[in-house]
Simulated assay, not measured.
Amino acid sequence: MSVTVPSTPPSDRRDPKAESAPQATRRQWVSRLLSRAVSLWLKAQVESLDELHVEIAARDRQIFGGILPWISLKASGVVYRGLHLSAVEMHATNIRVNLSEIVRGKPLQLLEPVRAEAWVVWQVLDLNASLQAPLLAEALDDLFAPALATIAPDGTRTALSYSHASLEPGQLCLSGSRDGDRFTLKTPLDPGDGRFLSFGAPSLTWEGQATEIALAPFTVDLGDQVRIDHLDITLEAIACRGHLEITA
Results as ranks from 00 to 15, higher is better:
229 D>Y: 10
80 Y>T: 11
206 W>G: 02
110 L>C: 02
43 K>M: 09
129 A>T: 05
59 R>K: 13
132 Q>K: 15
203 S>P: 03
12 D>Q: 14
9 P>S: 01
204 L>A: 06
184 T>R: 01
185 L>C: 11
49 L>H: 11
225 Q>Y: 12
72 S>R: 15
226 V>I: 15
165 A>M: 08
165 A>E: 10
108 L>D: 01
55 E>M: 12
25 T>R: 13
98 N>M: 07
235 L>N: 09
101 E>Q: 09
4 T>S: 14
183 F>D: 02
225 Q>A: 14
27 R>L: 02
9 P>R: 04
72 S>Q: 14
18 A>V: 11
103 V>D: 03
216 A>C: 05
111 L>D: 06
183 F>V: 03
202 P>Q: 12
100 S>W: 09
94 N>C: 08
65 G>V: 02
212 E>D: 13
234 T>A: 09
5 V>T: 15
46 V>K: 13
194 G>A: 10
15 D>P: 05
146 P>C: 11
218 F>R: 01
219 T>R: 10
145 A>H: 04
152 A>N: 06
41 W>P: 00
49 L>F: 14
204 L>E: 09
83 L>N: 08
8 T>V: 15
239 A>C: 11
204 L>V: 09
89 E>L: 03
77 G>R: 04
142 D>L: 15
72 S>T: 08
220 V>N: 01
236 E>Y: 08
248 A>H: 10
165 A>L: 13
129 A>R: 11
182 R>N: 11
152 A>D: 05
240 C>I: 15
147 A>M: 07
134 P>M: 10
166 S>N: 05
225 Q>M: 12
80 Y>I: 15
219 T>D: 08
90 M>Y: 03
222 L>Q: 07
150 T>Q: 13
179 D>N: 12
32 R>N: 15
33 L>G: 03
86 S>C: 04
228 I>L: 14
37 A>M: 10
80 Y>H: 14
173 C>S: 06
54 V>N: 00
174 L>I: 06
108 L>W: 02
40 L>V: 12
143 L>K: 09
156 T>Q: 05
26 R>E: 02
73 L>R: 00
50 D>W: 07
205 T>C: 13
136 L>F: 10
242 G>Q: 07
1 M>F: 07
171 Q>R: 15
20 S>H: 10
203 S>G: 07
216 A>Q: 14
57 A>F: 01
37 A>K: 04
124 V>A: 00
180 G>E: 06
228 I>K: 03
84 H>S: 14
23 Q>A: 10
153 P>T: 02
26 R>S: 01
122 W>A: 04
48 S>H: 10
70 W>E: 12
229 D>L: 14
207 E>N: 13
92 A>N: 02
128 N>G: 13
66 G>N: 04
175 S>N: 11
100 S>G: 05
189 L>C: 02
215 L>F: 05
164 H>I: 05
214 A>I: 05
58 A>F: 11
176 G>T: 13
177 S>I: 05
54 V>C: 00
174 L>D: 05
185 L>R: 10
113 P>L: 08
148 L>F: 11
184 T>L: 01
68 L>R: 03
178 R>G: 03
84 H>F: 15
23 Q>S: 06
12 D>P: 04
97 V>K: 00
199 F>H: 00
8 T>D: 13
95 I>W: 00
76 S>C: 09
53 H>Y: 13
201 A>I: 07
53 H>T: 14
140 L>N: 06
184 T>G: 00
